[in-house]
Design a binder for these strands. Structure first.
Lengths: 219, 219
DNA sequence: TTGACAAACGAACGTTCGTTCGTAAGCTGG
DNA sequence: CCAGCTTACGAACGAACGTTCGTTTGTCAA
């Protein structure tokens, strides 16, 4: 079953509303729904109802629920790259870039109605083997690697002390982001973002060099 | 419907297997299942199958699925208290107690097959209003309060500097625990616990007083 | 021995899930 | 104008969900 799923019909045509448009509209809504209801709680029936279309019509854009989930993860990844990755790599390398990353990272939670998509998806699928879990893991490894690389660059430029363990620092910054999301979403604590920012800046400042601080102040 | 749920039949009798025993057995399994599949993914059918009993037989112990979920949260809370709370309050007040808390906190993840129960439950229900969410929030507030109180005690004893903000420190320690669980469960990184321990100890040591360090070394 | 009661069961309920199918409608190249 | 393709639809499917019901079993008290 499910034959012919591997030719995604990418041929370019221009009807009044193309399938790609609808697909985008579906995924935009799916990402929000999944961030608060979960990727499994994201039901085809409710999603189609929220979009004012039929179950079958929506289903046709994806071969299966799993494909919908995978596409939703990809869509969330795109949003993350747009809201965090892009402004980060637009900033000057070194400490300024690392600080820019932290600030946009904290701000991106607002991009989804139910808080950080990946925080929710991670917790939901960390114990369920399969393609969806693999996709989430891939996106998170990619991000953690980028974060670590940003730290290493700052170190290479002499903005951070040599004895800093980039993986350890990346772990701690990531933990603070998770904590921020937790406190905001579960306890509805508006101070969460401030707490996380305070902690991130203090942690970074504690291992910054004089030239690093100068570069940060200049930017 | 669901009449007579409010007299739990606490009358003392001694059949070969009492209802309370079965209920305990059910909840023990439920906690593990929920920690990896989620509280919603915890279905009565699969749970009863895993226990070798019928759906109806299991269902009878709870008036509804929601009641089962609430009981599961309570059971997880008991395990947490037993594994973390008890050893913590057995330790000497002040810095020794705070360090004991951290160590047992990091170790308790092993109590559940799918990692920290509350980390999973928090992420799952942070966007779903209702009694289950309220129960989770209650347990977490209770814990966060205990953590903050432990910090304040250490401060009162002069083991931590006066300028320390207990709520901020509690937030950061909690974030590190979340990060530990995330890295362990999603990335299957065995270094996670070490990373979190390193960060916790460094964070605490940075604001410890000389007498606090002495008390910690002595215990 | 009998009556009462808790504990567990099998069978069925209505609902919702993901999925399949056949079929209109709308656009486009011949 | 007409085939051919994409897009969307309504209707229906089997499976699994939470839940209800009536019944059987085993144990204690009278």
């Amino acid at each position: 079953m499910r034959a012919g799923t591997n030719q995604p019909a990418a041929r370019a045509r221009k009807p009044s509303t193309t399938g790609q448009d609808t697909r985008r509209r579906i995924l935009e809504r799916a990402v929000h729904l999944a961030s608060s209801e979960g990727l499994e709680g994201l039901t085809i029936g409710r999603l189609s109802e929220a979009l004012g279309m039929s179950k079958a019509g929506l289903f046709g854009h994806f071969g299966s629920k799993e494909d919908l989930q995978l596409a939703t993860v990809d869509a969330a990844r795109s949003i993350f790259i747009e809201r965090v990755g892009a402004p980060t790599f637009a900033a000057a390398e070194g400490l300024p870039r690392l600080l820019t990353l932290c600030e946009h990272w904290l701000g991106y939670s607002d991009a989804f109605e139910g808080g950080c998509f990946f925080s929710a998806a991670s917790a939901e699928f960390d114990g369920r083997p399969g393609p969806v879990r693999d996709r989430i893991v891939g996106a998170m490894r990619e991000w953690l690697q980028a974060l670590e690389e940003t730290i290493k660059d700052a170190q290479r430029l002499g903005h951070l002390r040599q004895e800093v363990d980039p993986a350890q620092l990346a772990f701690e910054l990531h933990a603070l982001e998770l904590g921020c999301n937790w406190q905001r979403q579960l306890l509805r604590d508006e101070k969460a973002k401030g707490r996380a920012r305070t902690a991130m800046l203090a942690r970074i400042d504690a291992v910054a060099t004089a030239s690093g601080r100068r570069a940060a102040r200049a930017s």
